[in-house]
Amino acid sequence: MKKEIPLAIVFVAGVFMAVQFFVPHAGSEWIYEFVMEWTIIIGIFALALGIWSLLRVSTTKIKRKMENWPYAVVLLAGLVSMIIFGMGFMGGVESYMFRHFFNHVMIPLHATMFSLLAFFIASAAFRAFKARSALATVLLISALVLMLRFNPYLGPVGDLDADLASWILNVPNLAAKRAIIIGIGLGMVATALKVILGIERSYMGSD
């Protein structure tokens, strides 16, 4: 019974939502809208589980004095203070500290982490773009064509390269992406079908 009921829920919910796509009637729209709002709300409850997991892992680290445990204290301090700043009596998400932590801690960290990609893309190109085989050479040349597409110092070759680059984006790129998308579409549909039919149930765990 511990497994049958969830599988039944999956089947009923899945079939309902799939059929709903074809039913324009207002009744079907109502239920669809409810389900959408429900999912958002359940997500917030799930977040409590996440925070709990984070607390658990961090406190274990501190208790056992595992390697790098002082940083777990930093993590907890950040977590707890941010939760307190976001509480009603502090002014909620509009409070001074909450906004300043967002603007002067989260934004710089986020943007800097993202900007690391500039370095990593260079090192990946340096490390991996080697003409080892025919396929690797194709990869390499096509990357070079794109990287030179707006170079103003190539003269007429630059114009030719820009045309070639946009041709690559419009023709082979279009074809390949479409082939991949069609494949993905099929794979997704197959997986969704397996889930609804209860064939794919590893996400359900066991007892």
Partner: peptide, 19 residues
């Protein structure tokens, strides 16, 4: 952009020559 792209291309070329 123009200059950083040229530097990265230079690195790719160096890597391939060495290879």
């Amino acid at each position: 952009q123009v200059w950083t792209h040229m530097v990265i291309i230079l690195f790719i070329l160096i890597g391939n020559i060495g290879y």
